[in-house]
């Protein structure tokens, strides 16, 4: 079961249909069970039951999640995919900061390091909506970048991924591959 985490300003927000529902529909199409929780409502039983977690994005002005502690990510050890704001939450849990780098629209993403998530792809076009880029925490590697900033990171030893762009827009294959990794991690 995948734990899908809504990072929007509140549970049941107007942004939910834009940032969470498309990922839910994608997981339905892939055929993997999931449970959605708002980030303020994620409890120990949710984390225990999860084979993996996906942290969804938020609208540009919606940054309330930054005040929240996502320290559980440092001990979760199962696959994580942080999308845009979700990447920011993941990096912050490991002490990574941010710097201004606004991208809105399609950007070219170049793959920098070999990884099963991007295997066979060198460059692809991706949809971005972000105000800041993430500074790569020490325990992470940059996996892909645009001309302006790092677009994907992975923990050096754990299957923890952060993507600055939105894979649910025109790059569903990345979410499919992530779910595939999850399958391999399951007992």
């Amino acid at each position: 079961m995948i734990l899908l985490i809504d990072l929007c300003c509140r549970d049941g927000s107007l942004s939910r249909d834009e940032f969470v529902a498309p990922v839910e529909r994608l997981l339905c199409r892939i055929g993997v069970p999931f449970a959605t929780r708002h980030y303020t409502a994620v409890g120990a039983p949710d984390l225990e039951a999860a084979d993996a977690a996906i942290l969804c994005g938020t609208t540009l002005m919606d940054t309330g999640f930054i005040e929240h502690s996502f320290r559980w990510l440092t001990t979760f050890e199962r696959p994580v995919l942080g999308i845009s704001s979700g990447m920011r939450a993941l990096a912050a849990a490991f002490g990574g900061g941010t710097g201004p780098c606004c991208e809105i629209g399609m950007v070219n993403v170049r793959v920098l390091a070999p990884d099963p998530l991007f295997a066979g792809r060198e460059v692809f076009s991706a949809y971005t909506v972000h105000e800041d880029a993430v500074q790569v925490p020490g325990e992470f590697l940059p996996l892909a970048a645009s001309d302006r900033c790092v677009q994907a990171i992975r923990h050096r030893s754990l299957p923890l991924y952060g993507l600055l762009f939105h894979p649910e827009v025109r790059n569903e294959w990345i979410v499919e591959r992530f779910v595939g990794l999850t399958g391999r991690q399951s007992p």
């Binding site: 107007l14 834009e18 002005m61």
Partner: peptide
Amino acid sequence: LWCFNPLWL
């Protein structure tokens, strides 16, 4: 301004 696209995808 906040931006909302409730029909997105």
